[in-house]
Nucleic acid binder design. Structure first.
Lengths: 150, 150
DNA sequence: GTATCTATCTGAACTAGGTTCAAATTTTGA
DNA sequence: TCAAAATTTGAACCTAGTTCAGATAGATAC
């Protein structure tokens, strides 16, 4: 057994998919060549970043999900970008946004379970310099993600 | 001019894409037929929900993004599901999660601009019965979304 | 208003690559 | 240890993505 599943998940998470032109052609009743032209235009404009898969995360050992609010220490107010980009690099991190209000950053994190989430907080969040305070909001139930209803 | 762009965006947001088996085959050096078998298995298990596009949202008139925290009024504590599902139906809503902590729901919303966001709050959030309080956290800069770095 | 240039649309031919199938191999669990 | 089930794979097949050149529509300038 070659255990190809984890490789597929890794690749599909960020790309390795492509439009189904023929199916779209039937759906909206337009010629394939016309759709091809319009899709390539969107890609060349950079409007489409990638084509990827959306998973039922419970079924791929990423059933635990949390939003983490982060506040910087005063010394780091000037370099939120550095921290945001550092956090973005981790595979567990689905999204990173700089926000208005009482907190500076909100990130969405997916792990296998609470134990792995604890490790993530300890090994990634805590070790990042310049963080003053964090607050976890743990997802009890996900109704929609990445525009896909569950 | 047929103005196909909005139709493509609508379709690609939720699906109408498919895996690139040949490219994966080259990348991880496995036969196409083997990959096909493993991918179909993931699909049949329900591990893969769909294949879809990720956009540069600034370029498709969805540049404004906000997270909304929502608290229910006491009378609605027993039916958070109804409200969560109702909110999920709106095209502006990227995600909906029931969470622990001071708030009950967190939703991520994308609109063209602040004006459209205001309309969304007024027409969708305010009209939903059973909400006690909301708090918007507006995204000033997005570093990563849907696992895709920007 | 019309001429010219550019962008978009489209059918047809071409080609890449997804799918099927049957046989071989590996894994499972009785 | 053996039989059933799951996985792997090459080869043939066929769906569907891509290319291209001509047609059409839209934009710009005079």
């Amino acid at each position: 057994m070659k255990n190809i599943k984890p490789k597929l998940i890794r690749l599909f998470k960020g790309g390795y998919c492509t439009p189904q032109i023929a199916r779209i052609a039937k759906t909206i009743n337009e010629p394939s060549a016309t759709l091809h032209y319009n899709i390539k235009k969107l890609e060349n404009e950079g409007a489409i970043k990638t084509y990827k898969a959306v998973f039922d995360y419970k079924k791929i050992d990423e059933g635990f999900c949390a939003y983490v609010l982060i506040a910087f220490s005063p010394a780091e107010y000037s370099t939120p970008e550095r921290i945001a980009r550092a956090l973005s690099k981790h595979k567990e991190v689905e999204s990173v946004d700089l926000i208005t209000g009482d907190w500076e950053l909100i990130i969405k994190v997916r792990t296998k379970d609470q134990d792995e989430y604890y490790n993530f907080l300890r090994n990634v969040i805590s070790r990042e310099h310049g963080l003053q305070k964090t607050k976890s909001m743990i997802s009890l139930k996900q109704f929609k993600t990445e525009f896909i209803s569950l």
